[in-house]
Amino acid sequence: MLKFNRVNLDPLTETYAVGFYLQYLAKWPEYFMVAESPSGEIMGYIMGKVEGRLPDDWHGHVTALSIAGDYRRLHLAAELMNRLEEVSENKKALFVDLFVRKSNQVALKMYEKLGYVIYRTVLDYYSSPDGDADEDAYDMRKPTSWDKNKTSIITQKTIITSDELH
């Protein structure tokens, strides 16, 4: 945390309160992975958790994934995602989900390439970096091998508000 500034100074990367990171570290340490460069800089990190109710909602979640500007286009994000999916497989999660800004085309394309599909749209989920209107999020999902019939990516309702989320 003391060294992640080059990752977090990115305008789309949120710096959370200390307690937020530490709670993840305390509860799901195996879901926190940092990629360090040979020179010892932090290139990027992923942070996630496993949650939900059995039988059909037990899933891995990607809370934050960010790569420093200088280390992009090296497939680091994909590598970190793979590992997080593996951890989730180990925990018998049915799927992995994540939220992404509608406008973040780069991330969106990458997730699609990794096999994620847009499960639904969440209205006004993100606050804007420029103080403009809030932004919608895509809720994306990818089933794991435990979801044999791929039912976890079928939804009744494709657009929800952020209040409905909780």
Binding site: A17, V18, G19, L22, Q23, L25, A26, K27, P29
Partner: peptide, 16 residues
């Protein structure tokens, strides 16, 4: 906040 996380560690057994 960090002290509350210590408590979480005890509750969740993440001793390491």
């Amino acid at each position: 906040d960090s002290v509350e996380c210590l408590i979480t560690c005890f509750r969740n057994g993440t001793f390491h």
